[in-house]
Amino acid sequence: MLRSVSVEMMWRDRPYAERVRAAGAAGFDLVDLWDWRTSDIAGVAAAGRAAGVGVSGFFGNRDHPLCDPAGRRAVLDEIARSLDVAVESGARQLAMFSNAISGGRVVPSPPLPAEVLHGACVEAVAAAADLARGSGVTLVLEHLNTVYLPGYLWGDVPAVVTVAREIADPVVGVAFDVFHQQLCGGRLTDHLVAAAPWLARFDVAGVPGRHEPGTGEVDFRHLRATLDRLGWDGTITFETVPSDGRYESAVAAIDEFFPAAWCRATVEGA
């Protein structure tokens, strides 16, 4: 199992390359980004190679939605460009979004029946999987909360699991984001177990506040035990905002709840 950290939320007071070096010094294997076009991807990749830190992933689409059947060509072109950058930078995953996201807001789905929107997503992701095949990059379907992001089509874990199950392609996986799921229905254990066959990434942040584990209402020790029971071996990404403003505190909490030694033991025991 590998530990990744979002350098969009940690070490924000320094350039991206320095954030990568800080992640390596803190013992992380990988870093996660948002939009590769605004995050100095070349500097991140170079700093990562020097520090022995890989790129976990970044957005595959943001400007164009998967759910609009009329926009199929545009979203596939956007994903193809992101795939090229992923291969060049060594990124392992691309995040797939049902809707376009602009200025931190969700662009509403077109006014079509739910089954048409779902079908458009399935067809677009299946076509994107054909583009990604053989690249070493996994397409990861991202559910988001509709509390702060109203209008997003994939509003919980079952929504992305349904799409992944229908496509049934090893190039396509799902994220399980604790923060987003807790805000939109909870039942974290049940949904984690149901998502396990397609689980490509487990995202950690507390509720409320999106802070480090050990703050808020989520029992991360129980979720870690659930991952142990499932025998899952993937990437854990920490999308955490330090609760006290100190990056050292967030790293210490991550090390307490999801230590590097536990990740290594999981890999060795697999």
Rank of each mutant, 00 (worst) to 15 (best):
V207M: 07
T226D: 04
F202R: 06
L223G: 07
L153R: 09
D190N: 11
L144H: 02
G206I: 13
E217P: 07
L153K: 08
E166N: 01
L188N: 13
L183N: 09
P208F: 04
H191L: 13
A225E: 15
T240C: 15
A200N: 05
W232D: 04
L188C: 10
A196F: 10
T162Y: 00
T240Q: 15
P170R: 08
A164P: 05
V172H: 06
H191Y: 12
P197Y: 00
R221M: 12
V178L: 08
Y148M: 13
Q181V: 04
T189C: 12
Y152K: 02
T215D: 08
P197M: 02
T240S: 14
Q182M: 09
I236S: 14
P197A: 04
V147I: 13
V218T: 13
L149N: 10
T235P: 05
L223F: 10
H222F: 14
L153N: 03
D156H: 14
G206P: 12
D219K: 02
L149K: 02
A168F: 03
A164V: 05
H211C: 03
L192C: 08
D233Q: 09
Q181M: 04
V218Y: 09
T237R: 05
L227A: 10
D156L: 02
R165D: 05
D203Y: 10
G206H: 13
N145G: 02
L144F: 00
V163I: 12
A168C: 01
T235L: 14
T237M: 14
G173H: 01
P197D: 01
G155R: 03
Q181L: 01
A195H: 07
Y148L: 14
D219Y: 05
C184G: 07
D177Q: 12
R229A: 15
F176R: 04
E239P: 12
T226W: 03
D190Y: 10
V161Y: 00
L188Q: 08
A200P: 07
W198T: 02
L227G: 09
T189V: 15
G173V: 05
P170G: 06
P170H: 09
Q181F: 03
E239H: 13
H191P: 04
P170C: 02
I236M: 15
L153S: 02
A205E: 13
D219G: 11
V193G: 00
P170Y: 06
H180E: 11
L230D: 10
E166R: 14
